[in-house]
């Protein structure tokens, strides 16, 4: 994780520098002579993207109080085998959510009444997915 943070900081600085060069180059170009906003904004915000991730990973790193087994040369395989979280083995809900979103956008492109029907399915899928492990056998 340490190396992830370093790489992202390097990327942030790189994009910032390139963004500055891009802006200045456009300004001094005798044929253009003004800021080209699409490139300047995108390069600067790419720097923000990398810095944002680096900053967050650094916070996580500080909070974890030690080196992750995958970062440690002396760790055993089973040191890196804790409970990582809850992962659904399978679910129909993502498929249904994707299908309902497709119906909504089909309605936007064609006839709007189709979107209204699609939104109903969309609501059912979102609620179904969010609460899949909160009801029935999984209620707690």
């Amino acid at each position: 994780m340490r190396s992830n943070t370093v790489i992202l900081w390097v990327l942030a600085v790189f994009c910032l520098v390139v963004g500055a060069i891009y802006t200045v180059w456009n300004l001094i170009d005798p044929e253009y002579g003004r800021v080209e906003w699409a490139g300047t904004v995108t390069l600067t915000l790419t720097a923000v993207l990398a810095a944002f991730l680096a900053f967050y990973l650094e916070l996580v790193q500080r909070k974890q109080g030690g080196t992750l087994p995958e970062d440690s040369l002396t760790a055993d395989i089973d040191d890196g085998d804790p409970e990582i979280g809850h992962f659904s083995p399978w679910s129909w809900w993502p498929l249904m959510l994707g299908g309902s979103a497709a119906v909504v956008f089909l309605g936007l492109a064609g006839n709007f009444w189709l979107s209204i029907i699609g939104v109903v399915f969309l609501v059912v899928s979102v609620v179904g997915w969010t609460y899949e492990y909160y009801r029935g056998n999984f209620g707690r």
Binding site: L49, L53, Y56, G66, I84, G85
Partner: peptide, 20 residues
């Protein structure tokens, strides 16, 4: 043994990457 550590929360890190 590797020291006891708090593993990063995958949901939180994943959300931040998506926000990126």
């Amino acid at each position: 043994r590797a020291p006891k550590i708090n593993r990063p929360n995958t949901v939180a890190v994943g959300t931040i990457v998506w926000l990126g």
